[in-house]
Amino acid sequence: MLRTACVHLRSPLFSRTLIAITLSWLGIFVLTPHLLVMMTSVLTPDTTNFAVWPLTFEAYTRLWEPLYATVFLDSLYLSVTATLFCLLLGYPFAYLLSRLGPVWRNVLLFLMIVPFWTNSLIRTYALKLLMGNRGLFNDLLMGLGLIDSPIQMLYSGFAVTFGLVYILFPFMVLPLISSFDNLDKTLLEAARDLGASAAQRFWRIIVPLTMPGIIAGCLIVFLPAMGMFYVADLLGGARNLLLGNLIKNQFLVMRDWPFGSALSVTLILMMFLMLAVYARANRRIQRKGGLDDANFA
C-alpha cells in the first residue's frame, strides 16, 4: 500500500497503468539487458550456450593483449579525429544557423536531417563511389590540375574518418545549436561596449558558454563513432578497424560473447567518464543543458 500512497489519488487505475508500463518496459528492455551484458563479460565463453559459469576476469585481461590494444588505440584515434572535424565544421555552421530567423533556421535544420531517411549504410556506399579511383573526387582534382593520376583515397584511415564525419555531422550540430540559442546576446553587447575585441568575445564568452553544447556534441559523436563497423567495413582497409568491428566479430563470428561484452563495458565506462566531464562543465556555467537527465524528471 505504501507504493500507491504517493501516487495521484484520482483514477488510480489510469495512473497505475502508466507507471507500470513505464517501469516494466524500461526494466525489461533497458536495465536487465545492461546488467546481463555486465554479467556476460565475467562469464566463460561457450560455443553453444554463448556464456557459462564459472566467473572469470579473463575477458578483461585479454583487452591488454597487443593485438586488441592496437585496434583499440587505432579506433580511438579515428574517432577522436572524426569528432574534432565534426566540431570544427559544425561549430561555425551551428553559429550561423542560430543567427538566422526561426523559419530559415528550421527549414535548414530539416534539410539537414532529410538525408537520414536514406539509410546511413546507403550513404556510406555513396561515399565509396565518390572516393573511388575513378570517382568524382579524383575526377575533380584531376580536372583542376591538382593531381596527375588518381590518388588512392579508399581503404584508408582518411576514408573512414571522412565517412564518420559525414554520418555523424548532424549529431554535433544539434546540441551546438541549442547551446547557441541559450547564449545571452546581451553579454556580447556588453563585452563589445566595454572594449573587448572579437577574439576576446569569442574565447572568453562564446566558447565557455557553449561548452555544454560542445561536450554534448562530442559525446554523441565520439562514442557512436567507435562502433560504426559498417563505415570501416566499406571504406577502411584491414588496418582501419573500429572497436565496433571487433565487437561485432566477437558476437556474430567468433561467438566469444564474454569478450565482446567486456569490450562494450569498456565503452560504457568511457561514456560515464565523459558524462562526468559534461556535468562539470554544466555546473561551471550553472545552467541545466539540453542533455541533462533532470530534463526528464
Binding site: 507504493r3 524500461l26 560504426m228 563497423f229 562494450s264 561514456m271 542533455l291
Partner: peptide, 28 residues
C-alpha cells in the same frame, strides 16, 4: 504527472538509453 518509486531510476535509464552508443545497445 505522478510521483512513484524508482522514478529517478526510470529517468536515468532513459538518459542512458539516449547516450549509449548503438553498438552497446545492439548487444544488450
Amino acid at each position: 504527472r505522478y510521483r512513484f518509486p524508482f522514478k529517478r531510476t526510470a529517468s536515468a535509464l532513459l538518459f542512458i538509453l539516449m547516450l549509449s552508443p548503438d553498438i552497446v545497445l545492439a548487444i544488450t
